[in-house]
């Protein structure tokens, strides 16, 4: 009988334990999964826009995206050198810098890389903003870098065969090749005056981003291994320049804790009076 009473008194211990198990089952482990977004953190001081090896890049979070051979439209390619790209981003509230990092066994003058963005709110197809049958698509803004050019190019396209440089060149780029790895940094002001041609970055808001890489290694034919539409590509992923820190949620949480505590005190007091 005593044993029964002891068990009866401890029922809540078991219940709390079971409840704890249930909560533990609900809490998802924070494993990193395949990246879906690049987040450019807000930094104080100068942006390492012209130095892919700057220490500041080590503080930026890394996102990695798989790359595919371009098989969407002719001329296609079946094997590409870059199987994935690591991407980092930083911004200082005025300018944004995005770094691509990928392996390439050889440094070649025709090695190249590019970023692609949608322009404005209109959706655009990732393949150079090609026309879509049932949706009016928008243009794309492409930031391009080629090793032998040693600088960035600001391009626009709305469909195949329409790729051309903008009359205004707002994009800078610099690449460094070390130990079989390319690190290429693209930079530009967060916003420009050319709303119809340039992508605009609003801190805190996600936009779309895609990547392309060309291995410019010379083949026996004298042509680069990858050129034009023969390249490694991704389709759209997400990019966001982080907004400045917002501490208001902490304030709201503190207020809620105080209100809940006050509610508890009043409730217990009234219950005690009632009993």
């Amino acid at each position: 009988m005593a044993r029964v009473r002891r068990v009866g008194k401890r029922w809540w211990v078991g219940a709390v334990g079971l409840l704890g198990l249930c909560v533990a089952a609900e809490v998802q482990p924070a494993y990193s999964q395949q990246s879906v977004a690049v987040r450019a953190a807000l930094v104080k001081g100068s942006l390492p826009a012209d130095d892919p090896t700057a220490a500041a890049w080590a503080t930026a979070s890394v996102s990695e995206f798989p790359m595919s051979p371009q098989v969407h439209w002719p001329v296609r390619i079946t094997d590409v050198t870059a199987k994935s790209v690591k991407v980092r981003g930083l911004h200082d509230g005025t300018n944004v810098a995005i770094m691509l990092e990928y392996t390439d066994p050889s440094e070649d003058p025709d090695d190249a890389a590019a970023l692609e963005f949608m322009v404005g709110d209109t959706k655009a197809h990732f393949a150079h903003g090609q026309p879509m049958a049932q949706v009016e698509g928008g243009p794309v803004n492409i930031w391009y870098w080629k090793n032998k050019d040693g600088k960035g190019a600001d391009l626009g396209a709305k469909g195949f065969g329409t790729l051309k440089p903008h009359s205004h060149q707002d994009v800078k780029a610099k690449g460094v090749y070390q130990g079989g790895v390319w690190k290429v940094v693209f930079s530009r002001p967060l916003t420009t005056e050319h709303l119809a041609e340039d992508t605009q970055f609003k801190p805190g808001v996600f936009g779309s981003i895609a990547f392309a890489v060309w291995d410019g290694k010379k083949m026996e034919t004298g042509q680069p291994k990858e050129k034009g539409s023969e390249k490694a590509i991704s389709s759209w992923w997400y990019f966001r320049a982080d907004a400045p820190p917002d501490y208001s949620p902490y304030m709201y949480a503190l207020l809620a804790v105080a209100l809940a505590l006050g509610f508890e005190l009043v409730l217990v007091r009234r219950l005690k009076k009632g009993s």
Binding site: H125, A127, M132, A133, Q134, V135, S235
Partner: peptide, 12 residues
């Protein structure tokens, strides 16, 4: 050729 709900801008 997809309609808007098929997100034609993403597919390859």
């Amino acid at each position: 050729g997809l309609p808007v709900e098929g997100m034609p801008w993403k597919t390859a």
